[in-house]
Computed example of a mutant assay.
Amino acid sequence: MTTPKPGSILLGTTRPAELRDWYRRALAPGYQGEGPIDLGGFLLVIEQREDVQPRNGEPGRMILNFHVDDFDAVEAQLRAAGADWLVPVEDRSSGRFGTFADPDGNYLQIIQFKQHA
């Protein structure tokens, strides 16, 4: 049996240009062009939708996690982009975590897992 590999996620929004600009600033500052934003081989598709509200009513239902190698650098990049931090950055037994929201209220996390010898 073949296991499919996730390749992209679609974010429906009432304001695609604003959301696309925010994601570029926050997570892909060097990205140019229109269409899907390449996040290290995983594509973020942002699309105008008429069947969604301006803010996500159940943002905890799905949280998109980004695994990072340099937590401090990504945290600084997100702060510069105006990320709305929901939970203060914290060290846990498995690594360092930070939870934030995009302008539509979708939850995201950056995680730097501890390397085990």
Rank of each mutant, 00 (worst) to 15 (best):
R49A: 07
E47V: 11
D51E: 02
L64W: 15
F66N: 09
W85S: 05
E18Y: 09
R96G: 02
G40T: 01
I110F: 05
K5G: 12
L11T: 14
N65W: 15
N65S: 10
V45L: 04
A26E: 09
V87A: 13
P103C: 07
P16L: 02
L19I: 15
L39D: 08
S8Q: 14
D84E: 15
A81Q: 06
Q112I: 14
L19K: 01
R20D: 10
L19Q: 05
G12H: 11
V74G: 06
H67G: 13
A76Q: 12
P59A: 12
P88I: 01
G95F: 11
D70E: 07
D21Y: 05
Y107N: 00
R55N: 14
I46C: 02
P6E: 09
Y31T: 00
L19V: 15
L10C: 14
D51V: 03
L64R: 06
A28G: 08
G40N: 03
D51Q: 04
V52H: 01
I111A: 05
E90V: 14
D91W: 07
G41Y: 09
E18S: 03
L108I: 02
R55M: 15
P6F: 07
L64T: 04
L108E: 06
L108S: 02
Q53M: 14
G60Y: 03
R79A: 13
L108H: 13
L64I: 08
Q32P: 03
Y107C: 01
Q53K: 12
A73R: 09
P16M: 03
Q53F: 13
F97K: 12
Y31E: 14
L27F: 12
L43W: 01
I37S: 07
K5S: 14
W22Y: 10
E50H: 11
A28S: 12
L19C: 08
Q77E: 13
V87S: 09
F100G: 02
A73E: 09
G41V: 07
D51R: 03
R15I: 03
A26S: 11
F100V: 01
G12I: 12
F66H: 15
I63P: 00
F66I: 08
V74S: 03
G33Q: 01
D72T: 13
A76P: 09
E47S: 08
